[in-house]
Design a protein around this nucleic acid. Structure first.
Lengths: 168, 168
DNA sequence: CTCACGATGTTACAGTGTATCAGCGCGCAA
DNA sequence: TTGCGCGCTGATACACTGTAACATCGTGAG
């Protein structure tokens, strides 16, 4: 439904996508530290997700994994994604029903800001103490005790803005 | 799948839910001003959504409307919801795949913060210049040009916190 | 009247996510 | 070694969310 802009997307220089090696290494470390099983399926799912700077749907992931021979059902992918999200290794993008691998190494998944580029489709992940402070004050004023939150911004990333400017 | 905590929820005093009359009045004004049709179906959908402080799924809405006699298909509800969201009369809660009526009268739907209570399920809607400023600065630093955003916070609302404290 | 156009009705279907049960691998205790 | 428990995976079925396509209806303009 939404596939263009090349198959690897990251190669264009949009945002800063970290690639699978780093993600896999961090996953191994996390699982070892928490005494969790980093099984083959979980590894494969993470590898596919981390190979893209664009978010992938669960069914996309299942299809890509199945393409390499052995069929993988979507339900298995969902279970692997549950595991990976619970451990902060991938994040769910609520506005797209899709998943991206975690770029930074922040301990928990709190306080993230996702930047989704309308042009190239890449997702950049950042943190913002300014936003955190402001939100904390606003919530405190209202007497609301936060437990989790999502903040997703859609727009044009710097690389795409530059490219558009250069084309004039 | 997810229905409990009473049918009206708003009666408990959680948050400040405005009720259908105000929402309908605003909708009429908006549609008159923009020369849009505030049809029966759109009115009915908005009334159902506004009668709840909790978010309703499109199929929930269809069911409630159908319960009053005439059957309403989900697809019709979706079309009405599209119209209402485009005109800022209801908002979509991405983390729940559900809809709430707009409480405030801000012209456009930008810059909103949704507060979702885990205990009573009500949704409160607010704005935060502090968050806006912080986010604007953070995005500017990264060279990202925002077009739209969603910010949804899940936690415990003030009323539920007080109720919990009183029960000790 | 007729035509254009937007709103609605209806059916079918695509996409997203979960429930359930069965089988498998592996460590561990008897 | 055997048997058991437990977590992971496979597989089917299903529920929930959303859209496409086309027919119909009502209303206002010409």
């Amino acid at each position: 439904m939404h596939d263009h802009a090349g198959t690897q997307a990251g190669s264009g220089g949009c945002g800063h996508h970290h690639g699978p090696e780093e993600a896999l290494a961090r996953a191994e470390a996390v699982c070892r530290a928490r005494d969790l099983q980093f099984t083959r399926l979980r590894r494969d799912v993470l590898e596919v997700v981390a190979s893209q700077a664009r978010p992938l749907g669960a069914y996309d992931i299942a299809e890509r994994l199945s393409a390499t021979g052995k069929r993988v059902a979507a339900v298995s992918v969902y279970r692997a994604l549950d595991f990976l999200t619970e451990n902060g290794l991938v994040h769910r993008i609520a506005s797209r029903n899709a998943f991206v691998s975690c770029g930074h190494a922040h301990s928990d998944g709190a306080g993230l800001v996702f930047l989704i580029c309308r042009s190239c489709g890449t997702i950049d992940e950042t943190t913002s103490p300014e936003v955190e402070d402001g939100l904390g004050r606003t919530l405190a004023k209202l007497g609301f005790k936060p437990a989790s939150r999502i903040l997703e911004v859609e727009g044009e990333c710097g690389a795409c803005l530059e490219r558009a400017a250069a084309e004039d």
